[in-house]
C-alpha cells in the first residue's frame, strides 16, 4: 500500500483554484519531486498534506487513512513533517533547542513531572537533547548547538529546518525548496545528505525544488504542477523531455 496518496485534491482561495484535482501516490522509500513554475501550487500542496489548509474537495490519504481536516500537530504525530519555504525556525531559541522542540512530540513524561523537576523528566530531557545532537550531526550542525537560530547563516538555517523536522521521527518528510539560496557546493552536500536520510533512516521524502539539476539528480519520480494542475508525472528523463513541461517553463533549458 502506498504511504501517501492525493486523490483529486482541490483547494480554492476565493476565485483562485490554487490546487486543482491533483492526484499522486508516494510509495514507501520514495524520493519524490514536486516541481512547477512560481505560483503553481506546490507549497499549497504541502499545506494541504500537513493540515494547514483543508482541501475544498478531494482526499488525502496517509497509510490508508483520510487525514484531511486533521489539525497540523496531529498530522505531525502521525508521521508527516515538513520544512518551510520561507524559513520558520524559532529564532530566539538555540540550535539545539530548535531540534528538541521537534523531538518533543515523542516525549514520554508529564507536565506535572516536569514542574516538580522529577528525575524522570530530567532523564527524558537529556535523552531528547542527545537525540537532537544526533540529528545535528547528520545535518553537520553539531558544531554550533548553542548558537541562536537567528544568528545562523542562511544555508545552516535551511539545514536546521531539516534537522528539526527529522527530530519528529517522521515517516514522510516534506522539504520545501531546501536548496534555495545555497551555493553549488552546498547544494551538492545537501543532495547527498537528503539521499542519506532516505537510505539510512528509511524516511520517504517529497521535495519541492526550483533547481532542475538538483531535482533531476536527486529524485526518482517527479510530478509537475502548473497553475494548480498536474501536467506531468514520471521519472526525471520523461519529465525532462515532456513538451508540456518545457512550455510551462517557457522554453527554459531543462
Amino acid at each position: 500500500m502506498s504511504i501517501l496518496e492525493l486523490q483529486a485534491a482541490t483547494i480554492k482561495f476565493g476565485g483562485l483554484i490554487a490546487v486543482n484535482e491533483v492526484s499522486f501516490k508516494l510509495e514507501k522509500g520514495d524520493l519524490f519531486g514536486l516541481i512547477g513554475p512560481n505560483g503553481a501550487g506546490k507549497t499549497t500542496c504541502f499545506n494541504l498534506i500537513t493540515g494547514v489548509y483543508k482541501p475544498t474537495s478531494g482526499d488525502i490519504i496517509f497509510h490508508g487513512r483520510q487525514i484531511q481536516g486533521t489539525p497540523p500537530n496531529r498530522i505531525a504525530q502521525l508521521g508527516i513533517c515538513r520544512t518551510f519555504q520561507n524559513i520558520r525556525l524559532f529564532p530566539a531559541l538555540s540550535v539545539l533547542e530548535n531540534v528538541v522542540v521537534g523531538g518533543f512530540l515523542r516525549h514520554r513524561t508529564t507536565l506535572a513531572g516536569a514542574l516538580l523537576y522529577l528525575p524522570s523528566s530530567l532523564r527524558e530531557t537529556r535523552r531528547l537533547k542527545d537525540e537532537a545532537m544526533d540529528y545535528l550531526k547528520i545535518l553537520d550542525l553539531d558544531g554550533v548547538p548553542n548558537a541562536r537560530a537567528a544568528d545562523l547563516p542562511y544555508g545552516m538555517q535551511r539545514r536546521l529546518e531539516i534537522a528539526r523536522a527529522m527530530a519528529t521521527k517522521p515517516e514522510l518528510l516534506l522539504l520545501d525548496e531546501p536548496a534555495a539560496g545555497m551555493n553549488p557546493q552546498e547544494k551538492q552536500d545537501l543532495m547527498e545528505t537528503v539521499k542519506r536520510i532516505r537510505d539510512d533512516h528509511g524516511i520517504t521524502i517529497l521535495v519541492i525544488e526550483h533547481d532542475m539539476r538538483f531535482v533531476m539528480n536527486l529524485c526518482e519520480r517527479i510530478v509537475v504542477l502548473d497553475h494548480g494542475e498536474e501536467i506531468a508525472h514520471g521519472p526525471p528523463e520523461a519529465i525532462r523531455n515532456d513538451p508540456k513541461v518545457i512550455s510551462a517553463y517557457l522554453g527554459e533549458p531543462v
Binding site: V52, A76, L89, L93, E97, V101, G103, F104, A114
Partner: peptide, 29 residues
C-alpha cells in the same frame, strides 16, 4: 524554572517564537 530547565518548557517557548512552525512540529498550540 523547572519548566524551562526541562524539555517541557520548549513548546511554550516555541509557541512564542512561531505558532505555525510549532504546530507543524507537533506542538498542541
Amino acid at each position: 524554572r523547572n519548566l524551562l530547565k526541562t524539555a517541557h518548557g520548549l513548546p511554550f517557548l516555541s509557541v512564542r517564537e512561531d505558532e505555525v512552525a510549532s504546530q507543524a512540529m507537533g506542538v498542541n498550540v
